[in-house]
Protein backbone atom coordinates (compact mmCIF):
# COMPACT_ATOMS: atom_id res chain seq x y z
CA UNK A 1 0.00 0.00 0.00
CA UNK A 2 2.86 2.30 0.88
CA UNK A 3 4.33 1.68 -2.52
CA UNK A 4 1.06 2.52 -4.21
CA UNK A 5 1.04 5.83 -2.42
CA UNK A 6 4.60 6.48 -3.49
CA UNK A 7 3.70 5.79 -7.10
CA UNK A 8 0.72 8.08 -6.89
CA UNK A 9 2.87 10.75 -5.29
CA UNK A 10 5.44 10.24 -8.00
CA UNK A 11 2.93 10.77 -10.74
CA UNK A 12 1.57 13.88 -9.07
CA UNK A 13 5.02 15.29 -8.39
CA UNK A 14 6.24 14.66 -11.90
CA UNK A 15 3.07 16.00 -13.40
CA UNK A 16 3.27 19.02 -11.14
CA UNK A 17 6.88 19.80 -12.02
CA UNK A 18 6.19 19.61 -15.70
CA UNK A 19 2.99 21.60 -15.32
CA UNK A 20 5.00 24.44 -13.83
CA UNK A 21 6.60 24.89 -17.20
CA UNK A 22 3.39 24.65 -19.08
CA UNK A 23 3.59 20.99 -20.13
CA UNK A 24 0.83 18.82 -18.78
CA UNK A 25 1.92 15.25 -18.10
CA UNK A 26 -0.52 12.41 -17.96
CA UNK A 27 0.17 8.92 -16.60
CA UNK A 28 0.28 7.78 -20.22
CA UNK A 29 2.98 10.37 -20.92
CA UNK A 30 4.91 9.06 -17.96
CA UNK A 31 4.56 5.49 -19.16
CA UNK A 32 5.80 6.50 -22.59
CA UNK A 33 8.68 8.43 -21.00
CA UNK A 34 9.61 5.31 -19.06
CA UNK A 35 9.50 3.17 -22.21
CA UNK A 36 11.81 5.54 -24.05
CA UNK A 37 14.11 5.81 -21.05
CA UNK A 38 14.34 2.04 -20.65
CA UNK A 39 14.85 1.44 -24.36
CA UNK A 40 17.22 4.25 -25.15
CA UNK A 41 18.77 5.68 -21.98
CA UNK A 42 19.02 2.78 -19.53
CA UNK A 43 21.70 1.09 -21.64
CA UNK A 44 24.25 3.65 -20.38
CA UNK A 45 22.53 5.23 -17.38
CA UNK A 46 21.10 1.99 -16.00
CA UNK A 47 17.46 1.46 -15.09
CA UNK A 48 18.00 3.36 -11.84
CA UNK A 49 19.76 6.20 -13.65
CA UNK A 50 22.85 5.88 -11.49
CA UNK A 51 25.33 3.86 -13.55
CA UNK A 52 27.36 6.80 -14.81
CA UNK A 53 29.74 8.24 -12.25
CA UNK A 54 28.58 11.61 -10.99
CA UNK A 55 25.11 11.26 -12.50
CA UNK A 56 22.20 9.99 -10.44
CA UNK A 57 18.72 10.72 -11.68
CA UNK A 58 17.21 9.32 -8.50
CA UNK A 59 18.79 12.20 -6.58
CA UNK A 60 16.69 14.75 -8.40
CA UNK A 61 19.84 16.84 -8.94
CA UNK A 62 20.98 17.66 -12.48
CA UNK A 63 24.42 19.23 -12.83
CA UNK A 64 23.96 20.66 -16.29
CA UNK A 65 20.31 21.64 -16.16
CA UNK A 66 18.50 24.32 -14.18
CA UNK A 67 15.12 23.92 -15.79
CA UNK A 68 13.07 21.28 -17.54
CA UNK A 69 13.76 23.12 -20.74
CA UNK A 70 17.50 22.57 -20.19
CA UNK A 71 16.85 18.87 -19.62
CA UNK A 72 14.79 18.58 -22.78
CA UNK A 73 17.56 20.25 -24.74
CA UNK A 74 20.11 17.77 -23.39
CA UNK A 75 17.83 14.85 -24.23
CA UNK A 76 17.40 16.13 -27.77
CA UNK A 77 20.85 17.54 -28.52
CA UNK A 78 23.16 15.55 -26.29
CA UNK A 79 26.18 17.04 -24.54
CA UNK A 80 29.01 17.81 -26.97
CA UNK A 81 32.36 16.46 -25.91
CA UNK A 82 30.80 13.72 -23.80
CA UNK A 83 29.44 10.27 -24.71
CA UNK A 84 25.89 11.67 -24.27
CA UNK A 85 24.53 11.56 -27.82
CA UNK A 86 21.73 13.61 -29.34
CA UNK A 87 18.39 11.81 -29.38
CA UNK A 88 15.95 11.84 -32.24
CA UNK A 89 12.97 12.97 -30.15
CA UNK A 90 10.28 15.57 -30.52
CA UNK A 91 10.05 18.22 -27.82
CA UNK A 92 6.98 16.42 -26.54
CA UNK A 93 8.80 13.10 -26.27
CA UNK A 94 11.74 14.80 -24.57
CA UNK A 95 9.21 16.22 -22.11
CA UNK A 96 7.92 12.71 -21.38
CA UNK A 97 11.45 11.50 -20.69
CA UNK A 98 12.07 14.47 -18.40
CA UNK A 99 8.82 13.75 -16.56
CA UNK A 100 10.02 10.20 -16.02
CA UNK A 101 13.36 11.48 -14.69
CA UNK A 102 11.43 13.48 -12.11
CA UNK A 103 9.38 10.43 -11.20
CA UNK A 104 12.58 8.48 -10.62
CA UNK A 105 13.71 11.17 -8.22
CA UNK A 106 10.38 11.12 -6.43
CA UNK A 107 10.41 7.34 -5.99
CA UNK A 108 14.11 7.27 -5.22
CA UNK A 109 13.29 8.17 -1.62
CA UNK A 110 11.32 4.95 -1.37
CA UNK A 111 14.18 2.77 -2.54
CA UNK A 112 15.28 0.13 -0.16
CA UNK A 113 18.44 -1.84 -0.05
CA UNK A 114 16.83 -4.45 -2.25
CA UNK A 115 19.74 -5.00 -4.58
CA UNK A 116 22.35 -5.81 -1.98
CA UNK A 117 21.44 -9.47 -1.57
CA UNK A 118 23.28 -12.55 -2.78
CA UNK A 119 22.69 -13.03 -6.52
CA UNK A 120 23.75 -16.70 -6.44
CA UNK A 121 21.21 -17.42 -3.70
CA UNK A 122 18.64 -15.46 -5.69
CA UNK A 123 19.35 -17.52 -8.80
CA UNK A 124 18.85 -20.72 -6.92
CA UNK A 125 15.51 -19.46 -5.52
CA UNK A 126 14.35 -18.35 -8.98
CA UNK A 127 15.23 -21.71 -10.48
CA UNK A 128 14.16 -23.74 -7.44
CA UNK A 129 11.73 -23.10 -4.64
CA UNK A 130 10.40 -19.87 -6.15
CA UNK A 131 9.16 -21.83 -9.18
CA UNK A 132 9.61 -18.65 -11.20
CA UNK A 133 10.59 -20.49 -14.38
CA UNK A 134 7.29 -22.31 -14.48
CA UNK A 135 5.84 -19.12 -15.91
CA UNK A 136 8.81 -16.89 -16.75
CA UNK A 137 11.77 -17.27 -19.06
CA UNK A 138 15.37 -16.37 -18.43
CA UNK A 139 17.57 -17.02 -21.46
CA UNK A 140 16.95 -20.56 -22.61
CA UNK A 141 15.27 -21.66 -19.38
CA UNK A 142 11.61 -21.40 -18.49
CA UNK A 143 8.45 -20.83 -20.48
CA UNK A 144 6.57 -18.12 -22.33
CA UNK A 145 3.48 -18.08 -20.09
CA UNK A 146 4.55 -14.96 -18.18
CA UNK A 147 6.76 -11.93 -18.81
CA UNK A 148 10.26 -12.62 -20.13
CA UNK A 149 12.85 -11.91 -17.43
CA UNK A 150 15.86 -12.20 -19.74
CA UNK A 151 17.67 -8.87 -19.50
CA UNK A 152 15.10 -7.61 -16.96
CA UNK A 153 17.87 -5.92 -14.97
CA UNK A 154 18.43 -3.57 -17.87
CA UNK A 155 14.76 -2.70 -18.09
CA UNK A 156 13.32 -2.49 -14.59
CA UNK A 157 14.53 -0.89 -11.42
CA UNK A 158 15.20 -2.86 -8.27
CA UNK A 159 12.38 -1.05 -6.53
CA UNK A 160 9.95 -2.05 -9.29
CA UNK A 161 11.07 -5.66 -9.25
CA UNK A 162 10.64 -5.85 -5.52
CA UNK A 163 7.19 -4.39 -5.85
CA UNK A 164 6.26 -7.04 -8.41
CA UNK A 165 7.32 -9.75 -5.98
CA UNK A 166 5.56 -8.53 -2.85
CA UNK A 167 2.57 -6.78 -4.38
CA UNK A 168 2.11 -8.16 -7.90
CA UNK A 169 -1.32 -6.60 -8.36
CA UNK A 170 -0.07 -3.08 -7.60
CA UNK A 171 0.93 -2.41 -11.15
CA UNK A 172 0.28 -4.67 -14.11
CA UNK A 173 2.07 -3.26 -17.10
CA UNK A 174 0.28 -3.37 -20.46
CA UNK A 175 2.88 -5.85 -21.71
CA UNK A 176 1.96 -8.35 -19.04
CA UNK A 177 -1.82 -8.56 -19.07
CA UNK A 178 -3.83 -11.76 -19.15
CA UNK A 179 -7.05 -12.34 -21.07
CA UNK A 180 -9.68 -14.84 -20.03
CA UNK A 181 -12.48 -15.49 -22.50
CA UNK A 182 -15.38 -17.84 -23.06
CA UNK A 183 -16.33 -18.69 -26.62
CA UNK A 184 -19.97 -18.90 -27.64
CA UNK A 185 -19.76 -22.68 -27.50
CA UNK A 186 -18.56 -22.49 -23.91
CA UNK A 187 -14.89 -23.18 -24.60
CA UNK A 188 -12.66 -21.40 -22.11
CA UNK A 189 -9.65 -19.63 -23.55
CA UNK A 190 -6.86 -17.82 -21.75
CA UNK A 191 -3.57 -16.27 -22.62
CA UNK A 192 -1.28 -13.26 -22.60
CA UNK A 193 -2.67 -10.18 -24.30
CA UNK A 194 -0.48 -9.37 -27.31
CA UNK A 195 -2.67 -6.81 -29.10
CA UNK A 196 -6.30 -5.75 -29.32
CA UNK A 197 -8.72 -3.62 -31.29
CA UNK A 198 -12.43 -2.96 -31.63
CA UNK A 199 -13.14 -6.35 -33.13
CA UNK A 200 -10.45 -8.72 -31.92
CA UNK A 201 -7.92 -9.73 -29.29
CA UNK A 202 -4.53 -11.20 -30.15
CA UNK A 203 -3.25 -13.57 -27.50
CA UNK A 204 -0.45 -16.03 -26.84
CA UNK A 205 -2.74 -18.82 -25.78
CA UNK A 206 -1.95 -20.62 -22.58
CA UNK A 207 -1.72 -24.36 -22.97
CA UNK A 208 -1.12 -24.51 -26.68
CA UNK A 209 1.40 -21.64 -26.51
CA UNK A 210 0.17 -20.56 -29.92
CA UNK A 211 -0.52 -17.12 -31.25
CA UNK A 212 -4.23 -16.78 -31.76
CA UNK A 213 -6.81 -14.14 -32.69
CA UNK A 214 -10.08 -14.08 -30.76
CA UNK A 215 -12.88 -12.31 -32.61
CA UNK A 216 -15.00 -10.52 -30.06
CA UNK A 217 -18.18 -11.34 -31.96
CA UNK A 218 -17.47 -15.02 -31.46
CA UNK A 219 -17.00 -14.73 -27.70
CA UNK A 220 -19.68 -15.04 -25.05
CA UNK A 221 -17.54 -12.96 -22.73
CA UNK A 222 -13.99 -11.89 -22.16
CA UNK A 223 -12.04 -10.10 -19.49
CA UNK A 224 -8.64 -8.49 -19.29
CA UNK A 225 -7.66 -9.47 -15.78
CA UNK A 226 -6.93 -6.67 -13.35
CA UNK A 227 -5.18 -9.09 -11.07
CA UNK A 228 -1.84 -10.63 -11.82
CA UNK A 229 -1.61 -14.43 -12.08
CA UNK A 230 1.72 -13.96 -10.32
CA UNK A 231 1.66 -15.26 -6.73
CA UNK A 232 2.48 -12.82 -3.92
CA UNK A 233 5.86 -13.72 -2.47
CA UNK A 234 5.55 -11.52 0.60
CA UNK A 235 4.69 -14.51 2.75
CA UNK A 236 6.44 -17.14 0.69
CA UNK A 237 9.95 -15.76 0.87
CA UNK A 238 11.85 -14.04 3.66
CA UNK A 239 12.99 -10.43 3.30
CA UNK A 240 16.50 -11.69 2.73
CA UNK A 241 15.33 -14.10 0.03
CA UNK A 242 13.38 -11.34 -1.69
CA UNK A 243 16.50 -9.21 -1.62
CA UNK A 244 18.51 -12.11 -3.06
CA UNK A 245 16.00 -12.62 -5.88
CA UNK A 246 15.88 -8.91 -6.71
CA UNK A 247 19.66 -8.72 -6.70
CA UNK A 248 19.83 -11.66 -9.09
CA UNK A 249 17.18 -10.17 -11.39
CA UNK A 250 18.95 -6.81 -11.40
CA UNK A 251 22.10 -8.62 -12.52
CA UNK A 252 20.33 -9.90 -15.66
CA UNK A 253 21.42 -7.16 -18.02
CA UNK A 254 22.03 -9.13 -21.19
CA UNK A 255 19.23 -9.64 -23.65
CA UNK A 256 20.15 -13.23 -24.24
Amino acid sequence: MALKRVLAATLLTAAGLAAQEGHGVSPADLERGMQIFLNSCAGCHGPDGDLISGVNFSSGQFRRAQTDNDLRQIVRKGIPGTPMPPGNYSDQEAGMIVAYLHSMAASGAARRATSTGDPAAGKSIVEGKGECLQCHRIGRLGTVAGPDLTGIGGMRRAVDLEKSLIDPDAEIRPDNMTVRAVAKDGTKISGRLMNMDTYSLQILESGSERLRTLRKGQLREYEVLKKSPMPNYRDKLSAQEISDVVTYLVSLKENM
Binding site: C135, T143, A145, S206
Partner: peptide
Amino acid sequence: MLRTWLLLAAAVGLNAQI
Protein backbone atom coordinates in the same frame (compact mmCIF):
# COMPACT_ATOMS: atom_id res chain seq x y z
CA MET B 1 -6.68 -21.28 -9.88
CA LEU B 2 -5.44 -19.37 -12.84
CA ARG B 3 -1.89 -19.94 -11.74
CA THR B 4 -2.40 -23.68 -11.63
CA TRP B 5 -3.84 -23.43 -15.05
CA LEU B 6 -0.80 -21.52 -16.31
CA LEU B 7 1.54 -24.09 -14.83
CA LEU B 8 -0.33 -26.78 -16.70
CA ALA B 9 -0.06 -24.67 -19.82
CA ALA B 10 3.67 -24.41 -19.43
CA ALA B 11 4.03 -28.14 -19.08
CA VAL B 12 2.14 -29.06 -22.22
CA GLY B 13 3.39 -26.25 -24.41
CA LEU B 14 6.74 -27.68 -25.26
CA ASN B 15 5.65 -29.41 -28.45
CA ALA B 16 7.38 -28.14 -31.54
CA GLN B 17 5.08 -26.05 -33.68
CA ILE B 18 6.64 -26.85 -37.05
